[in-house]
Amino acid sequence: MTPRRRRMLFIGCLLLGLAAATALMLKAFEQNLLYFYSPSQVMAGEAPEGQRFRLGGLVKYGSVKRAEDSLDVQFVLADCEDSLPVTYRGILPDLFREGQGIVAYGQLSTGQNGRLFVADEVLAKHDENYMSPEVAESLKKPDGASCMPPGMLNAGNREN
């Protein structure tokens, strides 16, 4: 074996080993790398109880209620399977609207009728579609999508 061959083999093994180590590490940290949980994950009890976490979903059509004398907002975040009511006090990002993908940071508590997510930070997520307003208008579904579009959750609710 020439020295060059040996170096080639060494670098090949180095890269393979690194790739394997990284893959295992990422697999182990999978839960921590999730930026947010979806409503169905929360309802299934996968989100940490009594701890602050992020909740991501679409703002359900017709669910946004603003208080008249304060910045309190109430809305429902939904994915294709489940939904969760959210309360928030503060200024919402420009992209916030019904049907928009939203990531809220806060914690679970119990409201009058079941679970309630109390958020203290609301971020808007935009999707990967770029088109002119005219095209968007012509594509618009009559009732508006209230279910998660494929791009919103990226990998979707993959089973691990």
Partner: peptide
């Protein structure tokens, strides 16, 4: 692979 705030590939 993960839920991110960043959009998916366009």
């Amino acid at each position: 692979w993960w839920h991110t705030l960043h959009q998916g590939p366009t």
